[in-house]
């Protein structure tokens, strides 16, 4: 089954919102788990498009990277 962008996008946003109370950043694996029948590479294409549409942003610890909704999450004063 090929992924339909709009459907997949909706599912991803819904998932992120469902967790909004506890966290705002997610590992790539959290999203592949949403689409157990799809290849990781196809899920990545969806996420890349969502980044390009400014729906998602990357968050990086330097060693690991996570995805979150644009503008969501907590960060310390003085940070952008």
């Amino acid at each position: 089954m090929a992924l339909v962008y709009e459907e997949a996008k909706g599912k991803i946003i819904e998932f992120i919102n469902s967790k909004a109370k506890s966290k705002s950043k997610f590992y790539f694996n959290d999203f592949t788990a949403l689409f157990p029948d799809e290849k990781g590479r196809d899920v990545k294409k969806i996420l890349t498009q969502m980044v390009n549409e400014e729906i998602l942003v990357f968050w990086s610890s330097g060693s690991t990277t996570m995805y979150g909704l644009t503008g969501a999450g907590k960060h310390a004063d003085g940070e952008d």
Binding site: S22, K23, S24, K25, G73, K74, H75, A76
Partner: peptide, 8 residues
Amino acid sequence: DNVCEVPL
């Protein structure tokens, strides 16, 4: 709690 996400 203001600057961190506890699960992370």
